[in-house]
């Protein structure tokens, strides 16, 4: 197993403050607006992290315990292949720019 790059140790100085702020983000929003707010938040944070290996770990953990059906197992096999292709394409893009 590769060393973990995603920091999962407790880091938030005031966890309750953060959790409250997270809930307040959604105050007065419809379900659809909440989905959008969550998505914007994820995109902002992902860009801040800026490290695909860290993000990949977070994505894997986020998926743990969810969608354990057969279909999802097949999807995961697919995504292993696509991450290989993705790495290759990323390399190409970087070299071109």
């Amino acid at each position: 197993m590769k060393p973990r790059r995603l920091n999962v140790a407790p880091r938030l100085a005031c966890p309750d403050d953060f959790y409250q702020a997270l809930l307040e983000l959604h105050c007065g929003l419809t379900d659809e607006e909440s989905r959008l707010a969550n998505a914007k938040l994820i995109l902002l944070l992902a860009n801040h992290i800026g490290d695909q290996a860290v993000l990949d770990e977070a994505l894997r953990i986020a998926r743990e315990g969810l969608g354990e059906g057969l279909a999802s197992a097949a999807e995961r096999a697919d995504s292993a292949v696509s991450s290989v292709i993705r790495a290759a394409v990323c390399r190409v893009t970087k070299e071109r720019t």
Binding site: E32, R35, L36, A39, K40, I42, L43
Partner: peptide, 8 residues
């Protein structure tokens, strides 16, 4: 949601 969030 991700598509629209990206565009926003």
């Amino acid at each position: 949601a991700f598509r629209d969030a990206t565009l926003m």
